[in-house]
């Protein structure tokens, strides 16, 4: 008995040391993984900020593009174009997305609601280039020319599922008590969702809209053969239109250094807009979450 105890003690401490060692190695591996994950991301951001700032100027955001041999010039038309194309996508996408989200959350406990949710998830996974070829085939081929509106339709296809899913989740965060209190006052189901649940969840619905906007503002592939590109100010919704992401692509693959520099400046403008939208959205979400917990 006592022999077993004295024999067991060193073995146990050996095992304990092994366990400490193993834990240490695992922490090390996790730190390495973290570093691998963070370094390239920060590197990308650093490159955009450092090189972009160097070439960003007032001229860049206020004037039209110049040929690479001339120098100077800017992307003002692309900045306006992006605003219009994204804005129209939102005009089309917000009612459909929010409405779908309300349906899935409030009336969706049936076969239609569940299949809509499944289809929304499929649509959320839709490769953006596929949204592009659909808008190309349906609108560009029919109209016979590239247009801002076809770009907006392609972006709306990517926008709707994100808004629908975030709206559904935002409405489901509103507690059952609030709905039941409303029913107890004799308010109908429809008025409850419209006048009680939706206003209470409005902050988070807006967050979803902002996140979806940030996502489509950076989309390039669906615009390559829909909105296409242009060197001039926007001439109409039915005309080819320059956008920031497509400009970044076409300037980036050009052989001219001046254009590369402008692409960095454009990337900085785009990344700042997208990050600003994301930060605003997350802050709004955090504030609402705190409010709803009663803090």
């Amino acid at each position: 008995m006592s022999a077993a105890a004295t024999e067991g003690a060193p073995r146990r401490s050996l095992r304990l040391r092994f366990r400490h060692l193993r834990d240490g190695i695992l922490v090390g591996l996790c730190v390495v993984a973290l570093a691998f994950a963070v370094i390239p991301l920060v590197w990308v951001l650093w490159e955009v900020v450092a090189v972009g700032l160097e070439h960003l100027s007032l001229e860049f955001v206020t004037s039209l593009p110049e040929p690479p041999t001339v120098g100077g010039g800017g992307w003002a038309n692309a900045i306006v174009g992006s605003g219009v194309v994204v804005g129209m996508a939102m005009l089309m996408g917000v009612p459909v997305g929010v409405g779908t989200g309300i349906y899935m959350s409030e009336y969706g406990d049936n076969i239609l609601g569940r299949s809509t949710r499944f289809l929304a998830e499929v649509m959320a996974g839709l490769p953006s280039i596929v949204a592009g070829i659909v808008a190309y085939g349906v609108i560009v081929v029919t109209m016979g020319q590239f247009s801002a509106i076809s770009g907006s339709v392609a972006l709306a296809l990517l926008f709707i599922p994100i808004v629908a899913i975030t709206t559904q989740e935002a409405l489901q965060m509103i507690s059952r008590d609030q709905r039941e209190a409303s029913f107890a006052l004799g308010v109908s189901e429809a008025s409850t969702s419209l006048r009680v649940v939706l206003p209470a969840a409005m902050g988070n619905v807006l967050t979803g809209v902002m996140i979806a906007t940030a996502r489509i503002a950076g989309e390039t592939a669906p615009l390559l053969f829909t909105a296409f590109n242009s060197r001039y100010w926007m001439e109409g919704l039915d005309r080819p239109t320059a956008t920031i992401p497509v400009n970044i692509y076409s300037y980036a693959i050009s052989p001219f250094e001046h254009w590369h520099n402008q692409a960095w400046a454009g990337a900085l403008v785009l990344v700042s807009l997208v990050l600003l939208l994301n930060v605003a959205a997350r802050t709004l979400w955090a504030r609402r979450a705190r409010f709803m917990r009663g803090g």
């Binding site: 955009v48 970044i248 692509y249 692409a263």
Partner: peptide, 11 residues
């Protein structure tokens, strides 16, 4: 960083 557009990563 998840919000950075893919064309920027590509560049």
């Amino acid at each position: 960083l998840a919000g950075i557009p893919s064309v920027v990563y590509g560049f």
